[in-house]
Nucleic acid binder design. Structure first.
Ligand code: FES
Ligand code: FES
Lengths: 168, 168
DNA sequence: CATTATTCGGATAAAAAATATCCGTAAACA
DNA sequence: TGTTTACGGATATTTTTTATCCGAATAATG
């Protein structure tokens, strides 16, 4: 029962993309450098976000990633499902059908009480994440940081972000 | 994000122990045979339940396992924590402290918004499981099964359970 | 048009975790 | 005393996660 490490990275990457000026992008490499994580693996997570439609990718020189929609419309559940996949974490192997007293397959169209409870618990997990948006995350982070840090980030963005479609 | 297979087995094992007559036990081997799962690994799960205090183990000939308390006082959360462990599934690696704009360690005494949200989601997951007891599971299972099956199970128990402290 | 920078997708490798088995010891009973 | 069982640790196997790499496609730049 371990959540992929990539979820943390992807969520933080979204938070950074959220404070990017309109029309600008950050490359996978830049995002990796910002968070000091392996570039190739960070790129993988960004691809997952991209194919889930959470971020838009811009190919070519001066390309990179930007959020596909406003930060308030992207939840942590979206990020979680994008990189972790939608498969349920509880894998019922239908043990109730096994052994000397196994139930007939015909009587197992509904999940057993145990499986149903775990599915419900997972729904609760996801619903909880669905209530938190990237905007919320950014807000709580900026509330906890001082002015100096904000300036530092702004400076870093200016020298690392690019703007496709125009010369720098 | 995968739940241990052992959780399913352990939960079903508890459900079977719940319908055992007072004072009787089932060996790890019998439980494995009933569910048709690898005996050695089933034994491992039972040890986990035992060290968590959910079941009582009786050593020696005619020994085995029985529930440590009434089925209505054992929840799926208990079973889950016993075999899966209590460690949080979301592993925050404090990426916010990394990179060129990393936050100072002193400012990271509270978990960041992302980590806090995942911890909250996991609490929701566990709370959901805490609301389901082994008794509930047994009730839903017996509601879905016919009289013939109940008799089959009763017969199997009679020939496979043992009663420590007395001759069979 | 050539060059450069970037994403994309798949293949692959390495590390870690889950899954599964085994064995020696202790305990309880017959 | 001999048998049956749980216990705990060690170990092996398999699967998943983590991480890297490379070639093709795409777009801007000069
Ligand atoms: S049969 Fe899979 S959880 Fe009950
Ligand atoms: S630093 Fe770990 S989740 Fe934010």
């Amino acid at each position: 029962m371990k959540v992929n490490k990539g979820v943390e990275w992807a969520a933080h990457a979204c938070a950074l993309l959220a404070v990017l000026p309109e029309g600008w992008t950050l490359s996978a490499e830049a995002l990796a450098a910002y968070h000091d994580v392996p570039p190739a693996y960070m790129a993988k997570q960004m691809q997952a976000l991209s194919s889930a439609g959470l971020v838009v990718s811009v190919r070519g020189a001066a390309g990179g990633y930007r959020l596909a929609r406003p930060a308030r419309d992207i939840s942590l559940k979206d990020v979680f499902l994008a990189v972790e996949g939608a498969a349920p974490s509880f894998r019922c192997t239908e043990v109730r059908q096994n052994g000397p007293c196994g139930a007939a397959k015909a009587q197992c169209r509904k999940p057993c009480g145990i499986a149903a409870s775990f599915y419900a618990a997972e729904t609760a997990f996801r619903d909880s994440l669905a209530g938190v948006t990237i905007m919320d995350v950014v807000a709580s982070a900026s509330a906890a940081s001082d002015l100096g840090k904000a300036a530092k980030i702004a400076t870093w963005i200016q020298s690392n972000a690019s703007r496709p479609g125009t010369e720098r």
